[in-house]
Design a protein around this nucleic acid. Structure first.
Lengths: 301, 301
DNA sequence: AAACTCTATTGTCTTAATAGCAATAAATGG
DNA sequence: CCATTTATTGCTATTAAGACAATAGAGTTT
C-alpha cells in the first residue's frame, strides 16, 4: 500500500469534509479516495472517519492522527524541496520578513547589491513588526528582535540592538541635561510602540530595576517620525544605537549617558536576530542570502 | 511512485552500504531496490548515491537527505504506533449521554470506579432527556428508555424499567387505598413529564387498555421533586421501580399493587437501553465502558 | 410528502506500477 | 587471471490503483 498517497488523500478529505471534494483536488474518482482511506484504516486497525452517505467526519483518533501526520507530510515536502533546489544556482522567490526599522535602514540598502549579485533571485521583502511564521512556506528568512527557541530554526545574531537615550541640543538647552536616570521623570518622553506594547524606560538604580519613564508626549510605531520630533526638540527618545548613530554624526541629536544602566527592558538580550529554517539552508537562494546578510550587517553594525 | 517505499529502501541501502544487503532485509530482489532508488533520484532530480559495480556510497545531497528523511520516517512510524496503541489501551475522551434520572442514581455512582480503573479515559457525561445522535462523534455511548432500531447501532438492555405506582402512608390514610386500577381516577396524580410528553396511566381491564389517570396535581420532569411531593402525601405517582425502591425500603412510600396490569404505556417494552455505534474498528475505551456499565448495572438493577 | 440532487460505497474492468527472474557487465580479492 | 560479488537491464508475471457504472442513503427543494 502506498501509505503516503493514502495520507495525502486523508488530509485532503479531512480538510474538505467529504470525499468528492478531495477527489476533485487530486483529479481521481471519489471511489479511489474512499478505497485508499479504507485501506489506511485497515492497516492501522482504527477508524479515522465516520461516514454517512452525505459526508465524513473525523473520529477522535482520526483527529489526533491528522494533526501529527500533517506535520510529517510538511516536513517530507521540505526535504524533497531542499534536495531539488540543492546544487542549483540561486533562483526563485526569496521571501524576507523584517522589522520595519531595521528593514528600512539596514536591509533595503544592502539588498540592492544582493539583487545585482544574484539576478535570478526574485526578492519579496515584507516589513512588519508582527510575527510571521517560518516554515509554513510563509517566509524564508525572518529578522526579529529576540528569538523563540526552536529546534528547527537557526538564529544568527546580527547586532546587539542596544537602546540609547538621545535628545537634540535645542531640547537640552530648554529643559536642561538630566544628570541621572532618575531625573528623566521630569522630562518629556517620545516613545516607540512595538506590537508588544510601549517601551517604558528602565534603569538599574542601586541594584533595583525601576521605571524611570518621562511623561509621554508622543507614542508611535513610526520610528522616522519619532526621530524627527526628537530633532525638533520635542523631548527625549530611546532607540537602538544603529538607528540614532547617523544623527549623532550629523550633530542633530546628542546621546545621553548616565552612570546607571538604562534600557527598555530588564532583560538585556534584545539583539537583532536573523532566523531561518535549518533545512532551508540547503537551498542556494537561502544560503546565499543568509551568508550575504550576515556578512554585510555584521561588518557594519 | 510509492515514495515511502523508496525512502525505506534508500535508508536501508545507505545503512547497509550496498543494494544486495538491503534487498535481503526486505526480501526483494536487488534489482527492485536499484530501480526504486533510481526512480526516487529521478523524481528529486538529484543523485543520492554514487554507484560502483561493487558498492554504493552517499553523495553530499544524499547524506543531507538521508539525515532529514530518517527523522521523518521515524515520526511517521511514531504516528502509526500511537494510533495502534489507541486501539489497544482505553484512552481518549469518552462521551456518555444518559437520561437524567438514571444518570444521577445509577451511572454517576459507578463511574467513580470506572475512572480509577481506566485513568487514561477522560469522561464526559451529559445528563439530558433529549435525544442525542450517535455516530457524528457526538456521543460514544447513549443511555435511553427504549431504542430506535438501527443497523449500525447496538442496543443492550440494562434494566427493565418497570413503572410501579406508589404513595405515602399519609396520603393513603387520607384518601384511602385504591382497590382497583379504575379507582385511581378519583385520586390525585403526580406526573412525570418526559420529552415525549406526560405519562398517563394505562391499565388493561378485561382485555382493554384504558386510561385510568387521576386528575393532575403536579406535572414535572424533575423526578426528585416529584418523589418528595409523594412522600409529603400530595398524591399517587408512577415511577420506575429502581427509582422508588430505596423509598419503599425506608417506608417513606408504599407500593400500590393491583390485580390489573398497570403501566404508563400500552407497549410494555420500556426498558433502559445502552446504545453505541457498531464500528468496523471498535475502540477500547467504548468497549471497556460498555462492558463495565452493563456488568455493574445488571448486577444491581 | 415526493422528487431531486449530492455523496459514499461496491463491483467489474482496465491500466499502471512493482516484483521476480535471468542475463550481463564491471569491479574486487585471491 | 579466474572466481565471486554486485549493480544493472530486459522481459514477464503479479499486484495495486484508477475508471466507470450502478446502488443506496441522506439532505434539500418543490
Amino acid at each position: 500500500m502506498d501509505q503516503l498517497r493514502a495520507l495525502k488523500y486523508f488530509t485532503a478529505t479531512a480538510e474538505a469534509g467529504n470525499f468528492s471534494a478531495a477527489a476533485k483536488r487530486f483529479e481521481v474518482p471519489a471511489s479511489s479516495i474512499s478505497r485508499r482511506i479504507a485501506d489506511l484504516e485497515a492497516s492501522l486497525g482504527a477508524q479515522l472517519l465516520t461516514r454517512t452517505t452525505r459526508s465524513v467526519a473525523l473520529t477522535e483518533v482520526g483527529r489526533q492522527y491528522l494533526q501529527q501526520v500533517k506535520g510529517v507530510l510538511a516536513q517530507l515536502e521540505q526535504c524533497n524541496k531542499a534536495v531539488r533546489e540543492y546544487q542549483t544556482i540561486p533562483t526563485g522567490t526569496l521571501k524576507i520578513s523584517s522589522m520595519v526599522g531595521f528593514g528600512e535602514r539596514m536591509l533595503i540598502p544592502i539588498l540592492d547589491e544582493f539583487a545585482t549579485l544574484y539576478p535570478d533571485v526574485l526578492l519579496e521583502v515584507v516589513l512588519s513588526d508582527e510575527l510571521s511564521k517560518l516554515g509554513r512556506d510563509d517566509v524564508d528568512i525572518a529578522i526579529r528582535g529576540g528569538f523563540a527557541p526552536d529546534e528547527r530554526v537557526v538564529a544568527i545574531q546580527l547586532m546587539d540592538n542596544q537602546f540609547v537615550a538621545a535628545a537634540s541640543a535645542l531640547y537640552l538647552n530648554k529643559a536642561g541635561m538630566p544628570a541621572s536616570t532618575s531625573d528623566l521623570k521630569s522630562h518629556r518622553g517620545l516613545y516607540f510602540k512595538t506590537p508588544m506594547g510601549a517601551t517604558p524606560w528602565w534603569s538599574e538604580i542601586q541594584g533595583q530595576w525601576q521605571d524611570v519613564s518621562a511623561p509621554s508626549i508622543l507614542t508611535t510605531n513610526n520610528g522616522k517620525w519619532l526621530v524627527r520630533k526628537a530633532i525638533e526638540g520635542w523631548g527625549i527618545l530611546m532607540m537602538p544605537r544603529w538607528v540614532l548613530q547617523p544623527h549623532f554624526d550629523k550633530d542633530e541629536l546628542q546621546e545621553l549617558t548616565f552612570a546607571e544602566p538604562l534600557s527598555i527592558t530588564q532583560n538585556q538580550d534584545l539583539g537583532v536576530y536573523m532566523l531561518y529554517q535549518k533545512l532551508a539552508y540547503a537551498t542556494p537562494k537561502v544560503k546565499a542570502a543568509v551568508d550575504f546578510i550576515s556578512a554585510r550587517v555584521k561588518g557594519r553594525g
